[in-house]
Each structure stands twice: as C-alpha cells, then as structure tokens.
C-alpha cells in the first residue's frame, strides 16, 4: 500500500482533528485566561469550588464528562436546547460538539499552566505599575499577561495536544461519524475494529504522533524565545 496516499476518510479525520483541536484551543483561551487570573490573583467566595469544577474533567472518567455534556448540550439538554433555539448553535453529533468536548477536557490543563505562570509573575512589578497609574485592567494587560506569556503558550499547546488525543468524551457526546465527528483517535479506533484495518490505523497513528510532536517542539521553541525576552 502507498504510505503517503490517504483515503478520503483518513484525510477527513486528520483535517477534522486539527480543526476541532484549533477551535477548542482558541475558544477556551479567553475563558481560561480569565479563570486563571481569578484563581491566581483574586480572593473571592467560592474560589475553592471554582477550582474544583475547573479540574473536574481531569479526574472524572472521560465517558462521564461526555455523558454529562450530552445531558447538558444535547438537543434536549437545558443548555443545548437554549443555544439551538436562541442562537442556532447545535452541538450534538456535529464537529462543534467535538470541539466543545475537547475544550472541556483540555480546560484544566490550560488553566493550570496559565495560573502557575501568572502566580510566578512578581507582584511587586504589578504594584510598581499601579503606582505609575495603571489600573488593575491595564496592569494585567501590560505586566501580568506579557510576563506570563510562556505559561499561556504552554497552556494553549497542552490544550491542543489534549484535543488531538481526546477520545472518550468526544465519542460519548457526538459519536463517531466520518466527516463530521470522526477525529483521529476515533478513526484509529474504528480501523482497529475492522479486519485489515491495521495499516490505516498505523498510518494515522504516525500522523498523530507527528502533529503532537510538532506542536510540542514549536511551543518549546516559542516559549523559550518569549522567556528570554521577558527574563530579567
């Protein structure tokens, strides 16, 4: 067989995975930054609870997370019905649902990396910026965020990599429809379930390894460059 000629289904799975992972990462980024900031710098009632909820997908079985998503964002779920009726956004059995599942599963990793890097930013610098007239918003934008950039990038890459590998929650929530919700892991799983599917599974595995590796290497290089720039 030709190692470099992907079948349509395989090609679709690769493309879909990259698309789903990118959207999952981009869409969760602002929320993750906000929550990481709240956890790192603010004191408020229910902080421990928020922290727990954010970390829940990390400790729950993925199938449970997927099932909960199905309950909430399925056509008949309270959030799903509301979003479908008001904004026309449908998650169930669509690639958007796969992106949502990946975003939720990668969220704790993203928030964690960002929170740690924000906590590592010297608060004395933030105080100095405040004495120079920067409001808390501007302090965050011009001091905390740039100095935490290596951690933000790390969080984004972790979320992307997690999304590339997400399987349990995705397949539970949006099933395994070729061309719509069949991501790389689902496709690999499918090929391992049919006789003679091993070469396809292997090929997709190789691609999966390559993409994840490339993302990690790129993030390392980027984080190092940024890190050098902000290091004192």
């Amino acid at each position: 067989m030709n190692w470099f000629a992907l079948s349509l289904d395989e090609w679709n799975a690769v493309r879909l995975s990259v698309k789903v992972a990118t959207w999952a990462m981009v869409a969760s980024l602002p929320v993750a930054i906000l929550i990481a900031y709240l956890l790192a710098r603010r004191e408020f009632w229910g902080k421990t609870l928020l922290n727990g909820v954010v970390h829940l997908p990390l400790v729950l079985p993925p199938v449970v997370t997927g099932y909960l998503l199905l309950l909430a964002f399925g056509r008949r779920g309270f959030a799903g019905a509301f979003l479908a009726d008001t904004f026309g956004i449908v998650f169930s059995f669509r690639w958007t649902g796969a992106a949502l599942a990946c975003a939720v599963m990668g969220f704790p990793l993203m928030v964690r990396a960002m929170r740690l890097s924000m906590e590592a930013v010297d608060q004395k610098l933030e105080e100095a910026a405040a004495t120079m007239g920067a409001s808390p918003f501007w302090v965050f934008l011009t001091v905390t965020l740039p100095l935490a950039l290596p951690g933000i990038i790390a969080g984004m890459i972790l979320s992307f990599a997690k999304a590339m590998g997400e399987f349990g929650a995705t397949i539970t929530f949006v099933s395994n429809i070729p061309g719509e919700t069949q991501t790389l892991p689902s496709a690999i799983y499918t090929y391992t379930q049919v006789p003679g599917g091993d070469p396809n599974a292997l090929r997709l595995t190789a691609i999966s390894v390559l993409i994840s590796l490339a993302a990690l290497v790129a993030s390392e290089a980027l984080a190092r460059r940024v890190g050098q720039r902000v290091a004192e």
């Binding site: 100095a128 409001s135 808390p136 501007w138 740039p146």
Partner: peptide
Amino acid sequence: LPAHRRRIGYVFQDARLLPH
C-alpha cells in the same frame, strides 16, 4: 484613592523596572 489614581512616583529599593 486607589494607587493608580494618586499620581505618586515611587522609587523602590529594588528598582522594579518592567523586564519585558
């Protein structure tokens, strides 16, 4: 008044220049 609205210059012992 919060710090950012006081317009008070502050020179710290450890300079605290913004490293980036």
